[in-house]
């Protein structure tokens, strides 16, 4: 056994190059980023005050209390980012499309429509019941888009899925607007939610999203090896013994609950899944057993950094994180679209 590593040195290819270093760096970045989220904002707080706020509950200064208030928001944004990152990785794998993302496939908008409808017609204002609405909306939209995308010859090709998603998303957005515009009270309540914000991140929001995040992550990790096979095409995957239909449903289900739960609480935040996965693919290569879990970290990083940026730029108020991610994400989406034209989808 002990000579297997020495006689087969060429097998280092199984683990991405410098994986341990990359993992370490991402964790350090995560900590730095969390600290920045606690310290920066419309009112900056120093390092020692942050440590007071975090570890010395007996200190009751104004700064320490600001930090305490920001803890739940930071944890919430890390959770949402992780969920969106993994959701993006899953959706890209399921559709085998490099530009798939919950927002591009319309899943976010579907969740948003249901939440806004619940708001307008059922008077549902709190997060906990609306999460189920969001999940129903996300799931329904995913099925709808997949159904539309699979019509015609050749089944659900990546390009048809994206077109179906974009069209559905546009239609649903107009419905959201149609419901909101004549209702001032819905407008008011959901103006900020609509652009996507983690500002409402409370401990109860973290507790609400937690189970969905864990369930989604677990399914994602379990399906990763089979998704690796699916990346070679449906026929090759089937030849390797993958039940492609079941796999797609499982992975899509995980992707939908991850983004649906996030959308319910923070609004439709776009592009995080897209960016998170591509950054990891670029660094780690195509092995999804690494890319999927690491997309959780990169997603958490991207969303939290964007949130901090939004708070600093928008000071004394704040710029919603959805605006920031869209600003960073849109040009990168265009770049990816141009690049992926070279590859035949």
């Amino acid at each position: 056994m002990n000579n297997s590593s020495s006689t087969l040195p060429q097998h280092s290819w199984r683990v991405p190059k410098h994986f341990k270093l990359i993992l370490l760096c991402s964790i350090v970045l995560l900590v730095v980023c969390a600290a920045a989220s606690l310290m920066l904002g419309s009112r900056g707080v120093g390092f020692s005050e942050m440590m007071d706020g975090l570890f010395r509950p007996e200190i009751d200064s104004y700064e320490a209390n600001i930090v305490r208030k920001r803890i739940s928001r930071t944890v919430f944004s890390l959770c949402c980012g992780a969920a969106l990152g993994v959701s993006g990785a899953l959706m890209q794998s399921v559709t085998r499309n490099p530009i798939a993302d919950p927002s591009i496939l319309g899943v976010n908008t579907g969740a948003a429509l249901f939440v806004v409808s619940g708001m307008a017609f059922l008077n549902i204002g709190s997060a906990e019941p609306s999460i189920w609405l969001a999940l129903a909306g996300a799931g329904g939209t995913a099925i709808f888009v997949y159904g539309i995308g699979s019509m015609g010859r050749g089944g659900a090709t990546p390009i048809k899925l994206v077109l179906a998603g974009a069209a559905t998303s546009a239609a649903l957005s107009s419905l959201v607007a149609a419901i909101m515009l004549p209702r001032a009270y819905v407008m008011d309540q959901f103006r900020f939610w609509q652009v996507g914000s983690v500002g409402a991140g409370s401990w109860s929001a973290v507790a609400t999203i937690g189970p969905f995040l864990i369930a989604g992550l677990l399914i994602a990790i379990v399906t990763a090896p089979a998704l690796n096979a699916l990346a070679l095409g449906d026929e090759a995957a089937a030849g390797l013994g993958v039940r492609t239909g079941v796999l797609r449903i499982m992975a899509a289900f995980a992707g939908v609950i991850l983004c649906g739960a996030t959308t319910a609480l923070s609004g439709p935040i776009g592009f995080v899944g897209l960016l998170a996965t591509h950054v990891m693919r670029l660094i780690l290569g195509p092995d999804l057993r690494y890319v999927i879990p690491m997309s959780a970290i990169s997603g958490a990083l991207i969303l939290t950094i964007s949130d901090v940026c939004g708070r600093v730029i928008g000071s004394p108020g704040e710029l919603e994180v959805g605006v920031v991610t869209a600003f960073i994400g849109a040009p990168i989406l265009i770049l990816l679209a141009i690049r992926s034209k070279v590859r035949s989808l």
Binding site: R96, P98, A231, L232, G233, E235, A236, G285, P286
Partner: peptide
């Protein structure tokens, strides 16, 4: 089974 046109994942 080796299908006729399997897909090469980018960067593999």
């Amino acid at each position: 089974l080796l299908p006729q046109s399997p897909i090469v994942p980018e960067g593999i």
